[in-house]
Measured scan of single mutants.
Amino acid sequence: EVHFESHGEEQAMRVVKMLKKRNLTVEVKVENNKWIITAK
């Protein structure tokens, strides 16, 4: 499981795309203006 924190939507979306290319399940949450990305 991979956790990634991002402060910007643009950066977060880039990471999500990259993770999805690896056929991982990606969950995105926004907490306290931080984008929290979890990949399994």
Rank of each mutant, 00 (worst) to 15 (best):
E1T: 13
V2S: 06
V2M: 13
H3T: 12
F4Y: 12
F4T: 04
F4N: 04
F4V: 06
F4K: 03
E5Y: 11
E5F: 11
S6F: 15
S6D: 02
H7K: 09
H7R: 09
H7E: 13
H7Q: 10
H7N: 11
H7G: 07
H7T: 12
G8P: 03
G8T: 15
G8W: 14
E9Q: 11
E9V: 10
E9A: 11
E9Y: 15
E10T: 08
E10N: 07
E10P: 05
Q11N: 08
Q11A: 13
Q11I: 10
Q11T: 09
A12W: 10
A12V: 07
A12R: 03
M13A: 08
M13L: 08
M13K: 08
M13T: 04
M13V: 04
M13N: 05
R14P: 00
R14E: 08
R14D: 04
R14F: 08
V15H: 03
V15E: 01
V15N: 02
V16W: 03
V16F: 05
V16K: 02
V16Y: 06
V16E: 02
K17H: 08
K17Y: 10
K17E: 12
K17Q: 11
M18F: 10
M18E: 06
M18Q: 06
M18R: 08
L19Q: 01
L19K: 01
L19G: 01
L19E: 00
K20Y: 06
K20V: 10
K20N: 05
K21M: 11
K21G: 10
K21R: 11
K21F: 11
K21P: 01
K21A: 13
R22K: 09
R22C: 15
R22W: 14
R22D: 03
N23W: 15
N23L: 10
N23R: 11
N23P: 01
N23Y: 15
L24A: 03
L24S: 02
L24K: 03
L24R: 03
T25R: 12
T25W: 13
T25Q: 12
T25L: 12
T25F: 13
T25D: 08
V26G: 01
V26A: 02
V26D: 00
V26W: 03
V26S: 00
E27A: 07
E27G: 03
E27W: 11
V28W: 11
V28K: 01
V28M: 05
V28Q: 01
V28F: 06
V28N: 00
K29H: 10
K29P: 00
K29G: 02
K29R: 13
K29F: 09
V30G: 01
V30D: 02
V30E: 05
V30T: 05
V30N: 06
E31A: 08
E31N: 06
E31H: 09
N32F: 06
N32S: 04
N32T: 03
N33E: 07
N33G: 15
N33C: 14
K34F: 08
K34Y: 07
K34D: 02
W35V: 04
W35E: 00
W35I: 06
W35G: 00
I36H: 04
I37M: 02
I37D: 00
T38G: 02
T38V: 10
T38N: 04
A39C: 14
A39G: 07
A39K: 01
A39Q: 02
A39L: 11
K40D: 03
K40V: 09
K40S: 11
